[in-house]
């Protein structure tokens, strides 16, 4: 019952974060909200695993956490260093 309530709360939170992802004025707002949605997905998978008595889902959450953070840092690096195409064009010159 508690697990179900927590799952519901996290789902509502993810819906609110989705609004910010759509409405965010800057790219960084969207990126921040997307990162938080990824964290929400980790929580949803973990809570659902325990709700259905299958704790093996924790492996999925570990993988998802690693991918989430690698993705965020990749996008940040992209915005900091400019696009890859520019660099390649510079090298071609």
């Amino acid at each position: 019952m508690i697990l179900f309530a927590a799952l519901l709360a996290v789902l509502v939170a993810v819906v609110l974060m989705t609004f910010r992802t759509v409405a965010g004025p800057t790219t960084f707002d969207r990126l921040l909200a997307a990162n938080s949605i990824g964290n929400g997905a980790i929580l949803i998978v973990a809570l659902y695993g325990f709700l259905t008595e299958r704790p093996d889902f924790i492996d999925l959450t570990l993988t998802y956490a690693l991918l989430n953070y690698v993705g965020v840092f990749a996008v940040l690096k992209f915005f900091r260093a400019g696009s890859e195409d520019e660099e390649q064009a510079e090298e071609a010159r």
């Binding site: 309530a5 927590a6 996290v10 609110l16 910010r20 938080s36 929580l43």
Partner: peptide, 19 residues
């Protein structure tokens, strides 16, 4: 139960802060 409910409350609070 207390830990999970408190965590869910914090998560929801953060999401409201987003808006």
């Amino acid at each position: 139960g207390v830990l999970i409910l408190a965590g869910a409350g914090f998560f929801l609070t953060g999401a409201i802060g987003f808006i």
